[in-house]
Design a binder for these strands. Structure first.
Lengths: 231, 231
DNA sequence: AAAATAGTGTCTGTTAGACAATATCCG
DNA sequence: CGGATATTGTCTAACAGACACTATTTT
């Protein structure tokens, strides 16, 4: 056990909200240290920031080791915000990131890994819960004016998949024809396979990185209807 | 001069983009260490994060001491993002904040203080310049869907002042009647003094903290006209 | 032929945006 | 009374949002 020098610098950590999507559900990746007991303490994957490395490189390294998540598995990364904790005269800061991955996959690593639907999360620390909530709020907001949803989907998808993801994230249902009309009018999709009979047309986003829409989707007023079918 | 322990934690700093507004212009506060020479090195006000304190409290303390900025002078605070720098095997991180203050005031403190119109900034480090640009972009975006502009204005203002600030920040000019109609329709203003003859009515925001609009202003397409008069 | 899924067009109400005239105070 | 500044309404175009039917394939 270490004693911490009072004149040390604050401790710096990095944490990730790793989101995936599959079949109408958003999943969050959590980790728990391997422990003999059956009292599992789930938390956001995190890592100390190592001297000479950035928070992102420290985190990436840790994620590979602990939960087997490789860089290629990550389709999108974004800094969220930095939280601080002052405890026992010690300051620690944590730089939080949003990670997104295409499709819901399980990984293997040194730590225990869990993939939880975001409406059925296990008990988390207040901090972790707040960070996860913030990430989902931002994803929601950003879905209305950017192509961020594409990073949760396969490269090619049909408009039904896209709409379902859109509806899941924004928690609002939209008319199919209006959604298609709007989405196509944004001029960010390209058709990669034409529709044939009962198979839908497939599309992909023209630009592989995040694109901001010229004309955002309108956010529904507070008391809007939600036709989402119960799962 | 200190030697830094290789096994030390990363260094942590905090920096502030302090914005003020007066009469159609946005001002940024910069500091420079008092120096005998006439080669002045302007930079964003910043502070190390002290053990046992948060970045915000460290920064506030530093701002009071260095440039005489008291907490009461600050109408709005928001975290921007955290930058990192890896140099000589040392990692340092800097948590950046946006600060806003009502009206353009000069302060006095230990350091040299400068209030620069944002279109005539002195030479800054690439990092500082990027942070300032980011802050202004965010202010621009947020002005379209929130009451953030109110923190640059006196508590009470008339619609002309509000519109001028709006136009300055968003770099777009809008029709006066349409602006008033839109702004009043948002239902976030209260009239604090009725118009009398040639004196305009005064308003203030109903809610003193940041309010998000139900119906945001529309962002103009790239090639939009700008009727801003040259200053 | 019935069932499932894909695709598409019109109408209406709301909002954004262009635009001009009138009243009051002051000198 | 002229000048400056304040306030206000209408018309049009674009967009959002509601809504129903037809074509193809599969079983």
């Amino acid at each position: 056990m270490y004693t911490i020098d009072m004149y040390d610098n604050p401790q710096l950590h990095a944490a990730a909200v790793i989101l995936q999507y599959s079949d109408g559900k958003i999943y969050l990746t959590l980790t728990a240290k391997q422990s003999g007991g059956n009292n599992i303490n789930w938390q956001l994957p995190s890592s100390p920031v190592f001297q000479g490395h950035t928070s992102l490189s420290s985190l990436s390294h840790q994620l590979k080791q602990a939960i087997g998540l490789k860089d290629d598995d990550v389709s999108y990364r974004e800094q969220l915000y930095t939280t601080e904790l002052v405890q026992d005269g010690q300051t620690s800061a944590q730089i939080c990131y949003l990670f997104m991955s295409r499709g819901a996959k399980w990984h293997k690593g040194e730590d225990q890994v869990g993939l939880f639907p975001i409406d059925r999360l296990p008990k988390l620390s207040d901090d972790d819960a707040a960070i996860a909530r913030y990430a989902l709020d931002r994803l929601h907001a950003k879905t209305l004016y950017s192509s961020i949803v594409s990073f949760l989907l396969p490269i090619a998808f049909d408009l039904n998949d896209l709409q379902q993801a859109f509806e899941t994230i924004t928690r609002q249902s939209v008319d199919r024809r209006n959604f298609r009309k709007k989405m196509l009018s944004l001029n960010v999709l390209q058709e990669t396979r034409v529709a044939t009979g009962t198979k839908p047309a497939e599309y992909s986003f023209k630009h592989p990185s995040l694109v901001l829409f010229d004309a955002p989707f309108k956010q529904l007023p507070p008391g809007a209807k939600s036709n989402l079918r119960a799962s």
